[in-house]
């Protein structure tokens, strides 16, 4: 392998940054997975992270709610702030962080419990509901916001795993928003879904943008183009280009971005 090109082209964010990452480096054991990442995620925007497999986009996403903590060989350096709070500070509790930063995963992974219990899990964990009625309200409104209420209102007690793939993923989104996070991270949320279910999720993402800041990792450039306002392109652990989605897909600055979005890699 030739030497890495560490240049980053950034079109500055106009508007408020919700998350700002500065000089983030990350190692898995001896191997460096992220090289000096500087990225801002705008408030109430959808920021798409794209790039080939193993480029570090998922790794970076997982830095934002410290899911990488569970990997013992993982070492991280740099500064990541949400609304100015350093999320890797000693004083900050990771449970607190994850209540602020929800996550939706690649494979729909509802708990093998009832639909109600799935959504109620987070609020129960963090003690958000004051009464049974309050909990029911939280569950209902979360399912409504996830666009699932109409489909499941008559079978809240049936298992969440019995839903279709797309419904399961929306259930996972409902579960994530039930604790009223500020940020929702999505790690390829549609990769296991059919186009109609994907379209529903994309529509949902667009609606959620009003209340949440969303960062989404996706392998589908079309999806990134459809749902995001800003796009960040990662390659070999380097943030190559970061700017408004339109610019990335019509007129990328960097040759690597150009090659990737036009399908000239490999």
């Amino acid at each position: 392998m030739t030497t890495l090109d560490f240049t980053t082209h950034t079109v500055p964010l106009d508007g408020k940054a919700k998350i700002s990452a500065k000089n983030v480096n990350l190692w898995y054991g001896e191997k460096q997975a992220l090289h000096n990442i500087n990225l801002e995620v705008g408030e109430n925007q959808v920021t798409a992270l794209i790039g080939p497999s193993g480029c570090g986009k998922s790794t970076f996403l997982r830095c934002l709610n410290r899911m990488n903590d569970t990997i013992t060989s993982c070492r991280i350096q740099g500064d990541i702030r949400i609304d100015g709070d350093d999320i890797y500070a000693q004083a900050l509790d990771v449970v607190h962080l994850r209540a602020r930063v929800g996550m939706v995963f690649q494979k729909p992974n509802p708990f093998p419990k009832s639909i109600f219990e799935n959504v109620a899990y987070g609020p129960r964990l963090h003690g958000l509901a004051e009464s049974k009625d309050h909990m029911e309200h939280i569950v209902k409104s979360s399912l409504e916001r996830a666009g699932l209420w109409k489909e499941v209102s008559d079978r809240l007690q049936s298992p969440g795993t019995g839903l279709s793939g797309g419904q399961q993923q929306r259930l996972c989104i409902a579960r994530a928003i039930a604790v009223s996070p500020e940020v929702i991270l999505m790690d390829e949320p549609c990769s296991a879904l059919d186009p109609i279910a994907t379209a529903k999720i994309e529509e949902l993402i667009d609606e959620l943008r009003e209340n949440f800041t969303i960062a989404i990792v996706t392998h589908s450039m079309q999806q990134a183009a459809r749902v995001s306002q800003r796009t960040a392109f990662f390659h070999l652990g380097v943030l190559v280009e970061n700017g408004p989605t339109e610019g990335i897909f019509t007129n990328p600055v960097d040759k690597r971005t150009q090659d990737y979005v036009t399908g000239r890699f490999g």
């Binding site: 899911m67 607190h96 929800g102 995963f105 992974n109 708990f111 987070g122 964990l125 994530a176």
Partner: peptide, 10 residues
């Protein structure tokens, strides 16, 4: 994925 889901919920 179940473990991740739970950890992700805090």
């Amino acid at each position: 994925s179940i473990r991740e889901a739970a950890l992700g919920m805090g």
